[in-house]
Amino acid sequence: MPREIIATDAAPAAIGPYSQAVKSGSTVYLSGQIPLDPATMTLVEGDFGAQVRRVLDNLAAVAAAAGGSLADVAKLNIYLTDMERFGEANAIMEEVFDEPWPARAAIGVAALPKGAAVEMDGFLEL
């Protein structure tokens, strides 16, 4: 099955050798997004909540470029440098996603690119 590379200027450009997303059939694989402002490619200002919201905005932009939305997310992975922030991430997810919730994993990590506190990746079913 041919793969389609998904790219948009509404989300940060890749900072390595990867695509923002790859579509294969009806599945879109979203690469990890950190809280970069797509216009400046710098981390967003503000607290942890601002970082989570920027990550979700970035994922939404890539999903839209693929013809979907966050409502189409089937699986979401969240990487946190501080698992004590897990509750805050959950609260924001409840603001952004509607039931039925996507499948999800939350993984504690030692560090993320550019000093980010959160990163998310996942996939959509269109």
Rank of each mutant, 00 (worst) to 15 (best):
G25V: 01
R104K: 13
A105E: 13
A50K: 14
F97K: 00
E95H: 03
E94G: 04
A21I: 08
A60Y: 07
I6K: 01
Q20L: 02
A91L: 14
Q20V: 12
F97L: 00
Y18N: 00
A60H: 11
Y18K: 06
W101P: 03
A50E: 04
N58G: 15
P102V: 05
G68N: 04
T8Q: 00
E84L: 11
V118H: 01
V73E: 03
V52F: 08
A66I: 11
V22R: 05
P35Y: 12
S31R: 08
E84A: 15
K23R: 15
A103T: 02
P113K: 08
Y29P: 04
G49A: 13
G46F: 11
A105K: 10
V73G: 00
A66E: 06
E119F: 02
A106K: 09
G122Q: 09
I92Q: 05
G122L: 08
M93D: 09
K75S: 06
P100Y: 11
A10R: 13
I6L: 07
L56N: 04
F123R: 03
V52A: 03
T42I: 05
F86A: 02
E119H: 04
G87Q: 10
G16F: 06
R104D: 00
I92H: 09
M120V: 06
A89M: 10
V28W: 12
I5S: 05
L30C: 05
P17G: 11
M1L: 13
E95K: 01
G87C: 02
G32K: 14
T8N: 02
I78S: 10
L56C: 10
S19E: 08
D98P: 02
R3Y: 13
V73R: 04
N90I: 06
Y79E: 12
G25H: 07
A103L: 09
V44L: 07
A66D: 03
P17M: 10
F48E: 06
P35E: 01
D121F: 11
G68Y: 12
D121N: 15
E119M: 15
A71E: 13
P113N: 10
N58S: 15
L124Q: 13
A117Y: 07
A116V: 07
P35I: 13
M93L: 14
D98L: 09
Y18T: 05
S26N: 15
G108A: 15
G67N: 09
R85E: 12
R104P: 00
V118T: 09
E88L: 07
L76N: 03
F123V: 00
L56T: 09
P113I: 06
N77V: 09
L76F: 06
V62N: 05
E125A: 14
L70I: 12
S26R: 13
D37N: 15
E125W: 13
L59S: 10
A14N: 04
E95V: 07
M41I: 03
K114M: 15
E94P: 05
A65T: 11
D37M: 05
V96E: 03
A21E: 04
P35W: 12
N90G: 07
